[in-house]
Design a protein around this nucleic acid. Structure first.
Lengths: 109, 109
DNA sequence: TTGACAGTTGAACAGTTGTTCAACTATAAT
DNA sequence: ATTATAGTTGAACAACTGTTCAACTGTCAA
């Protein structure tokens, strides 16, 4: 006795994303799934800023901000540029704005 | 001696999202940031399916699948319908497809 | 009613994550 | 050279997350 429709399962199976794509996707969303990192991206969409400014804006320690910026940097979402004693961060990809707007549309319903 | 541009910070501050929106956004991304849940959404985009079919498709226990479906259900991303002994799940919102496609575009570069 | 199957639930466990802290490097000013 | 500031780093800690397991509910068939 079998209650599972094997045809459906076998029809859908080949349409599933391969492992690599799957993990790239979930890693991307994982990165966006933290309020601190969203705030950093949101802020950098307005203006490039240095670590101290971002820390002041978010009312956090420079260390905490730096750790999160590192995560965003290794995902190539932001880029860093050293000028004098400061390190200025900027969005490296305006794709981020689109994704944020898409999510906003979903959340604001 | 001050190396932080207060004007920049004060200019950006009012543009930041309020706390509620911020957490709604990060909660949404958190939900998408798991490969199991992405697979479930991806699969349900092709066909509504019951828990057993989804478990077979993803090669997971029904319990694990059920737990994740519950998370997706409380976020209103999927809806459940009981028919006989089975519970069939379907996407409740085709907005999800758009967000996934947006993220795909970002990842595939 | 009894048995079998579909699905749900909560506790427990291991693995992961974000912030803090202290130590560190690097740049600039005196 | 010395001092102060900007930022980075790694270890440690607590909080959170996803899967497993076992016990449970509900539905159908005999």
């Amino acid at each position: 006795m079998e209650h599972v429709d094997l045809d459906t399962v076998n029809k859908v199976k080949p349409k599933m994303p391969d492992t690599t794509l799957l993990y790239e996707l979930s890693d991307f969303f994982k990165l966006m799934g933290d309020s601190t990192r969203i705030q950093l991206l949101w802020a950098l969409e307005e203006n490039e800023m240095c670590v101290g400014e971002l820390a002041l804006l978010l009312n956090m320690t420079k260390s905490a901000v730096s750790h999160q910026l590192k995560a965003l940097r290794s995902a190539k979402l932001v880029k860093a540029q050293k000028r004098g004693k400061n390190v200025f961060y900027a969005l490296s990809d305006h794709h981020v704005r689109t994704v944020l707007e898409m999510a906003l549309e979903h959340v604001a319903e």
